[in-house]
Structure formats: C-alpha cells, structure tokens
C-alpha cells in the first residue's frame, strides 16, 4: 500500500516536472535597479537601462509574458533559488562560484573592470601606492572578488550593497578609489554631475579567473529548457539587429565584446 502511494506520488511529481519542460510563456525576471546605465529607476519609479531593454527584447523574441522584479543585489541569487522569479538579467558575470548554484546562458555582453580615482589625487595602481587606501566596491560582485584576492593585503576594501551607495561615499570623500565595471563607472558615475571630479586610473582588467566570461542570464539548474530558450533568443536578437539597436541606444561602442 505504502509503495503504491509513493509510486503514485512520484508519478504525479514527474508529470509535474514534465509539464514544466514545455515552452515558457510566463517568465518572472529578477533585475537590480541600482546599477546605471544597465539597470536603474527613473524618477517616477519605472525601471530603465540596457539590462531592462534586453529583458524586454528577449521576452518579445520568445513570445513570453514577462514581469520584472526588482531585487537587491545581495539576495538576487537566493531569491532566484527561492522561486521569487525564474531568471536574473542583472549584468551578472558568469563565474565558477555562481555556477555552483545556478546555470548561465551564454554571455549577452562583456566589459572590462577598472579603478577610478579623484582627479588630482595622483594615486597610482601600484602595490606601494595602494597601501592603506580605501577602495569602494559593490559587495558580492566579481570586482569584490578580484579586489579582495589580488589587492586585499594592501588596500582596505569597503563593501557596499549597491553601486549607487559606493558613489555617494566616493563623492563625500570617504573613499580613495572605486573598483567597478568600466562601463558602469563611466556612464553611471564619471559622466554624471556628481562624478565629474573622478577619472579612470590603471589598466582595464579582464582576467577570466576573476571576471568570468562576461555577463549572462542566470536560471535555476533544473530549468534547462528556459536556459536554451533564452540562448536561442540571445542569438536571434543578435542576428536580427534588435541587439544592435539597444546597444546604440546606450553605448557608442560594441558592448558584446569578442
């Protein structure tokens, strides 16, 4: 009797699993909303940015109905695993540590990381000059990982929940340097009024060991069908010119990388 119940139960579960393996028509997408120009809030609380446009374009390509769910960066993977949404489109770099928990699509863009300093501060990126400097970085990002591993012994790493908070403290003078994605830094800070006093310093960093293979879309490991649909959609919008349109709306260079 027990066996029968268990078998029946398993059959129902499997059937449920099989039902999931169909085409996705409703997708909830986790986004960050505090990472301009990729993802930010307008003054009336609307989401905007490169990630947001890419999300809408992919959904249109798949013919799925999409809901965007803003989520703080810290909890963005746990919330995916807790099924608060089905995919993350939030400039998330494809790294080994993250792959232990989630699966990634192919990259949808790739940009190098850089340091920035206050103009006239004269700080150089060298072991001697970095000693004791306060460097602001967003917690749990590839940049945090890189900074902690490579420069952790020299600099004091100051970690923030969002890139916007790091910019606030950079302006108020609590930080000597920032470490972040070069495009996010450029358009989200250096080219804005508040970041006008800051400039890039040091080389661009792209080491795969720390920075992964570019930014991809994260899905739960069991949702391989969704991953494949998204991969096909990325290829499709790359081919049909939609990607290029979005690219040109935000950047004057090719953000897809090599």
């Amino acid at each position: 009797m027990h066996k029968l119940i268990i078998t029946a139960f398993t059959a129902v579960l499997l059937a449920g699993g099989a039902a999931q393996a169909k085409e996705w028509t409703k997708i909830r997408i986790g986004v960050e909303g505090a990472y301009p120009p990729f993802s930010s809030m307008t003054e009336d609380g609307e989401l905007q940015g490169f990630d947001i446009d890419i999300a809408h374009a992919l959904c249109a390509q798949i013919n799925a109905e999409c809901t965007l769910v803003p989520q703080d960066w810290d909890g963005i993977i746990p919330a995916l695993l807790a099924r608060k949404y089905d995919a993350i489109i939030a400039s998330m770099s494809i790294t080994e540590e993250r792959k232990k928990k989630v699966n990634f699509t192919n990259k949808y863009y790739q940009t190098p990381a850089r340091f920035a300093r206050r103009k006239g501060s004269g700080i150089e990126v060298s072991a001697a000059d970095l000693k004791g400097r306060k460097v602001g970085v967003q917690r749990a990002t590839i940049h945090d990982g890189f900074l902690t591993e490579v420069f952790g012994d020299e600099v004091e790493v100051v970690r923030y929940g969002s890139q916007d908070e790091a910019y606030l403290d950079a302006v108020s003078g609590r930080l000597d340097l920032l470490m972040a994605d070069s495009v996010a830094l450029m358009d989200g800070f250096l080219n804005t009024e508040q970041g006008g006093d800051w400039e890039f310093v040091g080389p661009p960093y792209t080491d795969v060991k720390y920075f992964g293979e570019g930014a991809g879309i994260a899905v739960r490991k069991r949702d391989n069908d969704l991953r494949e649909q998204l991969n096909a959609a990325i290829d499709a919008i790359r081919a049909n010119g939609v990607y290029r349109q979005i690219n040109e709306k935000y950047f004057d260079f090719d953000i897809y990388g090599n």
Binding site: P78, E97, D144
Partner: peptide, 10 residues
C-alpha cells in the same frame, strides 16, 4: 552578509 554573498547560503 559577506559569507552569504560569497557562497549564496543565506
């Protein structure tokens, strides 16, 4: 929070 963000084990 740091441990959670590095290992995703809230």
């Amino acid at each position: 929070r740091i441990v959670n963000s590095r290992h995703f084990v809230p």
